[in-house]
């Protein structure tokens, strides 16, 4: 039996240098912005559909936007931090896990950006159209 190669070398995983990014951090970086947008859309639609006319409704909508945008910003910053962490070494020296983290966190940046746009468009509608019955 040849012992020339580490059996893990064949499939590259797992490498011996941990990335330092936990699975929950990675998950939040990837999906945080999307989840914020989803909640904003469903909650905003429900409030606008059933509560407009109530004086507090418009403030609930503004509040929803603030909370959602905060979560989006946090997800974006987390993703940015993961990308920076994963790319601190030159490309040839990175482990496959670092490549993976960079890939997933880059996706998080895009998803957070899209979430930001959709939430902001929705808030513009609240400001322009108002929340009257």
């Amino acid at each position: 039996m040849s012992q020339a190669r580490n059996p893990y070398e064949i499939h590259d995983y797992p490498s011996r240098r941990p990335t330092g990014v936990g699975p929950w951090t990675l998950a939040f970086a990837l999906f945080g912005g999307t989840i914020a947008w989803t909640v904003h859309l469903i909650a905003g639609y429900s409030v606008a559909n059933y509560m407009c006319g109530d004086a507090v409704a418009v403030w609930i909508l503004h509040g929803l936007t603030v909370v959602a945008l905060t979560v989006v910003a946090l997800a974006f910053l987390t993703a940015l931090r993961v990308v920076r962490h994963a790319t601190r070494l030159p490309k040839g020296e990175r482990t496959p896990e670092e490549d993976r983290d960079q890939f997933l966190a880059s996706g998080g940046l895009l998803l957070a950006g899209l979430g930001f746009m959709a939430i902001t468009f929705g808030e513009v509608a609240v400001v322009v159209a108002g929340c009257t019955p």
Binding site: Y45, N49, C52, L110, L114, F121, G122, A125, V126, A129
Partner: peptide, 23 residues
């Protein structure tokens, strides 16, 4: 016949989806 504001949320999302398609 849905009110304007509720449908505006979906109008916003409809615009947003053009971005990943464009990418």
């Amino acid at each position: 016949g849905l009110d304007l504001l509720p449908i505006s949320f979906f109008s916003a999302a409809s615009f947003t989806i053009a971005i990943p398609s464009g990418i």
